[in-house]
């Protein structure tokens, strides 16, 4: 067997072993959702919500700073 063939065989074997380790544990996870890439949609939604709240907090923070300045003068 040439070098290329050995490499491919090794790759296939290692893939198989990875799959079998997962199968052994047999714990159900959201693998389909991940393989379809839909998890990124959820990530984007959560990130937008959090960033929105942060922007709101920053604007509150600025308003307070302005009031503090007004009362100081």
């Amino acid at each position: 067997m040439n070098f290329k063939g050995t490499a491919i065989l090794a790759l296939i074997l290692s893939l198989f072993s990875a799959v079998s380790v997962r199968a052994q544990q047999g714990v159900e996870m959201a693998d389909t959702m991940r393989s379809e890439g839909k998890i990124y949609i959820v990530v984007a939604v959560i990130a937008i919500i959090f960033i929105g709240i942060v922007i709101y907090m920053i604007s509150l923070d600025r308003k307070l700073s302005k009031l503090e300045k007004e009362l100081r003068d």
């Binding site: 997962r22 714990v27 996870m29 998890i39 990530v43 959560i46 990130a47 960033i51």
Partner: peptide, 29 residues
């Protein structure tokens, strides 16, 4: 420190969904 707070939470929100986690019974995802 407010910027640090935002970066850390954003990192945790996103990373928490994307990293590989142990496959444990009962808990699953």
């Amino acid at each position: 420190w407010k910027a640090v707070a935002v970066i850390l939470v954003l990192f945790a929100l996103i990373g928490g969904l994307l990293i590989d986690v142990p496959r444990l019974p009962i808990l699953n995802e």
